[in-house]
Simulated assay, not measured.
Amino acid sequence: MTVYGATNGAGSGAAPERVDVLVVGAGQAGLSAAYHLRRRGFAPHREGVDGGFVVLDGNASPGGAWAHRSPSLRMATVHGFHDLPDAELPPVDPEAPAREVVPGYFAAYEARHALPVVRPVSVRAVRAESELPTSRLLVETDRGTWSTRALVNATGTWTRPFLPHYPGHFAGRQLHYADYRGPEEFTGRRVLVVGGGASAIQVLSEVAAVGETVWVTRSEPVYHDGPFTPEYGRAVVARVEEGVRLGLPVRSVVSVTGLGPSVAYRRAEELGALHRRPMFDRLTEHGVAWGDQELAVDAIVWATGFRPEVGHLAPLGLRSPGGGIALTGTRATADPRVHLVGYGPSASTIGANRAGRAAVNDLVKLLGDPAKEPGTAPAGPRSAPAGPGRAAVAV
C-alpha cells in the first residue's frame, strides 16, 4: 500500500495529486468500489505519479460507521450484514461487539487487496476545475487538494444524525442514536424512545431490561411477518430508487423494509416494550405532552435516522428542484463524472456492494478500460469525454 506524507503530497502550495478516480469514504460502499476499480485494472495511486485511484477516509482507522456503533450492538442483533466482494466474513461469536468485528474485517480486507486508503482525511469541497463538462474535479481536503477525472462518493449518513424539531424544552438527558452507548446509564430510569426503525428496536430491547421504556413513533410501524425474500428486497429497493431517480429527498432502504422477527425485536417483545404510542405534541421541562396529558421521563433517545453526508458536493450544483440528488443508476444525472454509492437504494450492505460494481463499470465506459493497456493509465483523453447527457450503463 502506498504511504503518503503528512499532506499526501498535496499540501498547501503544492500541486494537487492527480488521479483517475477518487473514492470518498472507506465504508462498505467505498471498499466495494475500490475492489472493483482494482479488479477492472485501475492501479493504486502512487504519490507524485499521475493516474490510478485513491480512497480518502475521514476516520482514523478502518471500519466506517461500524467503528462508532454502540458497544452493546452484538453481531447477533445487527440488522443484516452482507460480505464484501470476494471476502467472506469469518465465523464470529454472535455476542461479539459489532464495532470490533466489522472494523477488523474491513482492515483485513484493505490489506488483502492492497487498497490505497489514506486516512484521516476530511473532504471539505468538490468543485469543477472549469465550467467545461469535461474538466477535472478538484477535491479540497484538510490535507491538501486532489485532482481527479471522476469521483465516487461513499460518505454514507452516520455523520449526519437527524433530530426533528418539536416545540418546548426538555431539561433531562437527550441523545441521538448515534451517541447511544448502551443501556447502563439508563438503569432504573424511564426512557422515551422515538423512532420506528431497527435502531429504535435495538434501544428498546436493551433499555427495557434495566429500566422502563416508552415507545413513540410518528406513524404506525410497518411490520413484515414473512421472510425477507430476494423478491421482497427488490421491491423495497425499487420504491427507494424511484424517488432518487426523480431527485427527491432520500429514504433509506432500511426505513421501508419493515420490522421483522430479528433477535432484538423478539427481545423487545418479550420485555413488553413494543406498545407504541403516537408522537407527542411538544416537549416539557420534565418530559413530553399530548394535549393536556403530560408524561414525565428521565431521558429521550432519538432513533430518528440520518441524512446523506453530501454537503461537500454542493459546489457542483447536483441537487434537483425536488431537494435530492437525482441519480441514473449510481451516476449523478447532472454530472457523469460523479457517482454516489451507499446512497438511497444502495444504502445497505448488499446494495453497497452492487453499487460499487455498477459505478466502476460505468466509469470504465467513461474513462476508458485500463485492462486493455496493462501497466498504463486508462486509455483515452485525460478529461472525461462525455457531457451531462450521457446515459449510465450498469453491467
Results as ranks from 00 to 15, higher is better:
Arg267Pro: 01
Arg267Glu: 14
Ala268Pro: 03
Glu269Gln: 15
Glu270Ala: 14
Leu271Ile: 07
Leu271Glu: 12
Gly272Gln: 11
Ala273Gly: 04
His275Leu: 09
Arg276Lys: 03
Arg277Met: 12
Arg277Asn: 05
Arg277Thr: 14
Pro278Ser: 13
Met279Phe: 15
Met279Pro: 02
Phe280Asp: 03
Phe280Tyr: 08
Asp281Ala: 06
Asp281Ser: 11
Asp281Lys: 11
Leu283Met: 10
Thr284Trp: 14
Glu285Asn: 12
Glu285Lys: 14
Gly287Pro: 11
Val288Pro: 02
Ala289Val: 09
Gly291Asp: 03
Gln293Ala: 14
Glu294Asn: 02
Leu295His: 00
Ala296Gln: 11
Val297Thr: 11
Val297Gln: 01
Asp298Ser: 04
Asp298Lys: 00
Ala299Ser: 06
Ile300Tyr: 05
Ala303Asp: 03
Ala303Lys: 05
Phe306Leu: 03
Phe306Tyr: 07
Arg307Leu: 08
Glu309Phe: 04
Glu309Gln: 05
Val310His: 04
Gly311Gln: 11
Gly311Lys: 09
Gly311Trp: 13
His312Asn: 00
Leu313Val: 05
Ala314Ser: 12
Pro315Tyr: 09
Pro315Met: 06
Gly317Met: 07
Arg319Met: 11
Arg319Thr: 15
Ser320Val: 10
Gly322Thr: 13
Gly322Phe: 12
Gly324Arg: 09
Ala326His: 15
Leu327Asp: 08
Thr330His: 10
Thr330Asn: 07
Ala332Glu: 09
Ala332Asn: 14
Thr333Val: 03
Asp335Ile: 14
Pro336Gly: 10
Arg337Pro: 09
Val338Ser: 04
Val338Ala: 01
His339Glu: 10
Leu340Thr: 15
Val341Gln: 07
Ala347Thr: 13
Ala347Phe: 03
Ser348Val: 14
Ser348Gln: 05
Ser348Thr: 14
Thr349Cys: 08
Asn353Trp: 05
Asn353Phe: 01
Ala355Asn: 08
Ala355Phe: 14
Ala358Phe: 10
Ala359Lys: 06
Asn361Tyr: 15
Val364Thr: 12
Lys365Gly: 05
Lys365Asp: 08
Leu366Gly: 00
Leu366Glu: 09
Leu367Gln: 09
Leu367Asn: 03
Gly368Thr: 04
Lys372Trp: 14
Lys372Glu: 15
Lys372Gln: 06
Glu373His: 03
Pro374Arg: 02
